[in-house]
């Protein structure tokens, strides 16, 4: 199943990341994973959290540019070639990957990843049809 991801448009400068995480911590929002993409002018912070909608609402109030969208999350065996298999599968289906990052989990023997592709729904279908284990949003809470 696709899961919700929060992303925030931030300044590329010291402290902007802390401002965001601090605000979310104060509201008791639990961050499960985070990734920062940066250019010379700005950064995009992408967060998997237990309550992305509440987090967005909070950030909206503070005047931040925040967005919640669905991304694909899946698990592969934590061994060489585990991820490569999924990537070649998607490539074979012509799926374009915009970005991808790892999700921190405590489950042994598995590696979880999050990715945004050109078509989230289609990607989910391909993963399911090929027996790739998807991460359920309920596992995050």
């Amino acid at each position: 199943m696709a899961i919700k991801q929060l992303s925030v448009f931030v300044e590329n400068k010291q402290g902007s990341l802390h401002d965001i995480t601090d605000a979310l911590a104060k509201a008791n929002i639990d961050l499960r994973s985070m990734c920062v993409a940066d250019t010379s002018n700005y950064g995009i912070v992408r967060i998997i959290a237990n309550d992305p909608d509440k987090a967005k609402e909070l950030l909206d109030k503070d005047g931040h540019a925040a967005n919640v969208r669905l991304v694909n999350a899946f698990a592969v065996p934590d061994q060489p070639g585990g991820l490569a298999k999924v990537l070649s599968l998607l490539e074979g289906h012509g799926v374009n990957i915009d970005y991808m990052y790892a999700l921190i989990t405590s489950e042994e023997g598995k590696a979880y990843s999050v990715m945004r592709t050109g078509n989230t729904e289609e990607t989910d279908k391909i993963l399911i049809e090929n027996g790739i284990e998807l991460l359920d949003e309920s596992k995050l809470h």
């Binding site: 991801q5 992303s7 448009f9 993409a37 250019t39 002018n41 700005y42 995009i44 992408r46 909206d60 005047g63 931040h64 540019a65 925040a66 967005n67 969208r69 915009d98 945004r116």
Partner: peptide
């Protein structure tokens, strides 16, 4: 020219920016 993005214009995509 630096322009502030409106919150609703942000959609998580570097490509769109």
């Amino acid at each position: 020219v630096y322009v502030e993005l409106k919150p609703e214009q942000f959609d998580d995509s570097v490509k769109n920016i």
